[in-house]
Design a protein around this nucleic acid. Structure first.
Length: 304
DNA sequence: AAGACGAAAGTGGTTGA
DNA sequence: TCAACAACTTTCGTCTT
């Protein structure tokens, strides 16, 4: 179990920060994420960074071809024959009849239940592959049920709605995952997820706060192997910029990336724009733009 | 030779008439 | 439904270390 971690394997520090809100255990000195799903009963392996996680994650590639019902409906055929086509005894025939009857009854009675079975299975798969804690799954499941009751699924792929629900819940709980990440785990296109998400938000009158860039800082910092001090400074930079009101309309990942870039330079552990850009999923150009804005607005005396 | 910089053109999505 | 728009990307030439 992941909660058995006592020391950071990188810097041997015992100063571990348990962040239950994000479901992560972070090394207080070097910022490494030691465990990402401390409330999750699922995977028993530990992932030290995103790549390892990717390699170790079970479940394989997203099931691209999974469609409602495929593989989930079985029926007992109506011919009273055995497997070779031979006749079978009346006694067996009676048994088969009863089996057919109960099989029908036991399998899904309403379309809503059928929908839920598929959706919750998918939800569990995607949430696990994203390393999300149990409470997130629960909230997401609840939200999905709401959506089903409000008849918002019709005309949409169940998987798209599931992905959208996860995206929304993560944002509301302050553990943002990017659309890219969710897209990769679910096998649904980014714009599909976005569309379903916007629809749900409108129809259910959901109140989703905008993503605070600093929520991405620990994640990116861990991937870049930057320590806690750098993270703190990056977050301070973001707070300042936030107060100046010059974050609005900017992509949160780009802002977080630029702040980390500056903070790493201030601490003499400079990362290249490309390195930061890659883990944040933005381009160097975006980093440069945000960096220039931050530098100008905050009057920073950083060179290089 | 690698990294940083910025201009210019292109993309996908939002908004408002 | 269309056009304007903002944010971001791609590409590329130039400068710096």
């Amino acid at each position: 179990m992941s909660s058995a971690v006592k020391k950071c394997p990188e810097c041997k520090s015992a100063r571990l920060i348990r962040d239950y809100e994000r479901g992560e255990i972070i090394c207080g000195d070097c910022g490494l994420i030691l465990a990402e799903n401390i409330q999750d009963q699922g995977p028993e392996w530990r992932a030290f960074d995103a790549e390892q996680k990717e390699k170790k994650a079970r479940g394989g590639a997203p099931i691209k071809y999974m469609r409602p019902n495929k593989g989930l409906v079985t029926e007992i055929d109506q011919y009273n024959r055995d497997i070779r086509g031979g006749k079978i005894s009346p006694k067996k025939q009676a048994q088969l009849y009863r089996m057919r009857k109960w099989h029908k009854r036991a399998s899904v009675s309403t379309s809503m239940e059928r929908n839920l079975i598929i959706a919750l299975t998918e939800l569990d798969r995607v949430a696990s592959s994203l390393g999300l804690p149990e409470n997130i799954k629960e909230s997401a499941a609840l939200l999905y049920r709401k959506a089903v009751k409000a008849e918002l699924i019709r005309g949409r792929l169940i998987e798209s709605v599931v992905a959208a629900v996860i995206y929304a819940i993560c944002r509301m709980q302050g553990i943002p995952r990017t659309l890219d990440e969710i897209s990769k785990s679910s096998g649904i296109e980014k714009k599909e997820i976005g569309r379903a998400y916007r629809f749900l938000k409108g129809e259910l009158g959901m109140d989703v706060p905008l993503t605070d860039p600093s929520q991405y800082v620990p994640k990116f910092a861990a991937a870049l192997k930057l320590n806690g001090e750098v993270q703190d400074d990056a977050i301070k930079l973001i707070r300042k910029a936030l107060r100046k009101g010059l974050i609005s309309g900017r992509g949160p990942t780009g802002v977080a990336a630029a702040a980390l870039y500056i903070a790493s330079a201030m601490h003499g552990v400079k990362k290249t724009q490309k390195e930061v850009a890659d883990v944040a999923g933005v381009t160097e150009v975006t980093i440069r733009n945000r960096y220039r804005e931050l530098k100008k607005e905050l009057g920073l005396k950083v060179n290089l």
